[in-house]
């Protein structure tokens, strides 16, 4: 009796060991914005291909790119393009970063529903965020102080917004900091004079999305790149992807993968 148990245990262990050896592993790390896309596509990919394990980690675009350069991940997700300094660093370490655009995202400008304003020009948004305009009445709104709501400066959304909307200028010092897209939406919901920016997928009915330069933030305008604050979301690999990494990226770009991208609140490429 005891022997049989032992044999069963042993065979189980061996089969487990063999199984583990067979499994291919993909390590993915980076942007918190891309995280839902990465997670959902990885889960679906693993359902179809049980022999592949994909680990998905957040941490931020910069962290993912640093990991790719240190070769501790296979795919770095990023909500912004790599900086020149990062590319130089990568090349000096023998890593050849290759970009794959997997989705598009629009940064929606949101106001409190009680705000009269429906449209702002890119220039006006820049002036608000850099502190040159501080009251809504300067923009033909109510006489109300503008409460500028921003993201923590280390986030990819901040960096993308900073590049797209502010041309790299500094956000005013007294802007409120929030650590996530959801927190920004919550803050704008509760602040009559508030203005914030979030990824399109995070917009709720409790805030008002305004048009920028008279262009609404929709899937069509983002895909057509007529909406000024649209950005691509990236997955970076070291050199041309091969093997399971390539199969996974192909899956993300397939019709099914892009369907998941849309479900995650972003804009699919197809």
């Amino acid at each position: 009796m005891k022997n049989t148990t032992k044999i069963i245990m042993l065979s189980l262990l061996i089969s487990l060991g063999l199984h583990a050896a067979e499994k291919a592993k993909i390590r993915m790390e980076g942007s918190t914005t891309v995280l839902p896309v990465a997670q959902m596509t990885a889960e679906q990919f693993m359902n179809i291909n049980p022999h592949v394990t994909i680990s998905v980690q957040g941490g931020g675009s910069g962290v993912g790119i640093a990991s790719l350069i240190e070769k501790t991940c296979d795919i770095a997700t990023a909500s912004r393009a790599m900086k020149d300094s990062e590319i130089k660093d990568a090349i000096s370490k023998g890593v050849n970063p290759t970009a794959h655009v997997v989705a598009m995202d629009g940064i929606a400008i949101i106001l409190h529903p009680s705000n009269r304003i429906d449209n702002l020009s890119k220039e006006e948004i820049k002036k608000i965020y850099t502190g040159k305009i501080s009251n809504w009445k300067e923009l033909k709104g109510a006489d109300q102080k503008i409460v500028v709501i921003s993201r923590d400066v280390a986030s990819g959304t901040y960096e993308a917004f900073n590049n797209l909307a502010l041309d790299g200028e500094k956000v005013r010092k007294d802007a409120l900091l929030n650590a996530s897209n959801k927190a920004v939406v919550m803050a704008v919901e509760r602040t009559p004079g508030g203005i914030g920016y979030v990824g399109l997928g995070y917009v709720t009915p409790h805030v008002k999305v305004i048009t920028v330069n008279d262009v609404a933030c929709t899937r069509q305008t983002i895909l057509a790149k007529t909406y000024p604050f649209s950005r691509p979301l990236f997955m970076y690999t070291n050199g041309k992807p091969t093997g399971e990494v390539k199969r996974y990226l192909d899956f993300v770009l397939s019709k099914e993968g892009q369907q998941i991208v849309t479900e995650a609140g972003f804009v699919g490429l197809k």
């Binding site: 962290v63 640093a66 400066v153 280390a154």
Partner: peptide, 13 residues
């Protein structure tokens, strides 16, 4: 708390 998660290890930040 807000910035540590996304600061690149070893950077000035």
């Amino acid at each position: 708390a807000a910035e540590m998660g996304e600061a690149v290890i070893g950077s000035t930040h």
